[in-house]
C-alpha cells in the first residue's frame, strides 16, 4: 500500500530559492560598486597610496608613478630609484631630466593648452616617499608644461 503512494509522488526539484536570494544580493552589491566609466587606471602593485579623507572625483590624466624602485611614466619605466630616492646628482640639478624630456614629448604629441585638454599629471607615489622627491617630480612635470597635479590617494 505504501509503495502505491510513493509512485504517485513527483521527485522533488532542487531548492534554488535561497541560492537565488544570495545571487540577488551579490548582484545588487556588484551593480552598486560597478564603475561604468572606463578610467584606465592601473594601480602600481609596488605603491601603497596614502589614506585620505579627500572626496575629489578621480579623473584620468597623464600617469606618473614613483614607487620605491622606479619612476614610471604612462606604464613605461623611466628611471631607477634606491629605497625611494633618486641619485644625489638629480637632487642637486633640481630636475629629473629624463622625466622632463618624456613629458615634453607627451605634451607636444597631445592637444594640451589653449582650447585643448588640461595639462594635468596624475601622481601615484608611495606613502613613505619624502617631500623632496615628490616635489622634484612635480617640478620636473611643471618644466615640461604640466603645472597641475592630481595626487592619487586611497579614500578612507
Amino acid at each position: 500500500m505504501s509503495s502505491q503512494f510513493l509512485k504517485k509522488k513527483k521527485p522533488r526539484g532542487l531548492m534554488l530559492t535561497s541560492l537565488l536570494d544570495m545571487f540577488t544580493i551579490i548582484l545588487i552589491f556588484l551593480i552598486v560598486s560597478f564603475e561604468a566609466e572606463d578610467q584606465d587606471f592601473q594601480l602600481d602593485p609596488d605603491v601603497t597610496l596614502p589614506d585620505s579623507a579627500a572626496r575629489s572625483v578621480f579623473t584620468p590624466a597623464v600617469s606618473v608613478t614613483v614607487n620605491p624602485q622606479r619612476l614610471i611614466v604612462e606604464g613605461e619605466p623611466l628611471m631607477e630609484l634606491e629605497d625611494g630616492r633618486f641619485s644625489a646628482d638629480v637632487y642637486s640639478e633640481g630636475e629629473i631630466e629624463t622625466l622632463v624630456t618624456r613629458l615634453e614629448e607627451i605634451f607636444s604629441s597631445g592637444n594640451y593648452g589653449r582650447g585643448g585638454e588640461e595639462a594635468v599629471v596624475m601622481i601615484q607615489a608611495d606613502k613613505d616617499m619624502d617631500y623632496q622627491t615628490l616635489y622634484l617630480v612635480m617640478r620636473s612635470s611643471s618644466m615640461a608644461g604640466f603645472s597641475r597635479y592630481r595626487l592619487a590617494i586611497m579614500k578612507n
Partner: peptide
C-alpha cells in the same frame, strides 16, 4: 540562475573594491 551566472563574472571584472580619489594641487 543562468542569467545571474553570466552577469556576476561580468560585474566582478568592473567592480571597484578600493576607492581611489585625488587631491588636486599645483606648484
Amino acid at each position: 540562475m543562468n542569467l545571474f551566472m553570466v552577469l556576476i563574472p561580468f560585474l566582478l571584472l568592473g567592480a571597484a573594491f578600493y576607492q581611489v580619489g585625488v587631491i588636486p594641487t599645483s606648484t
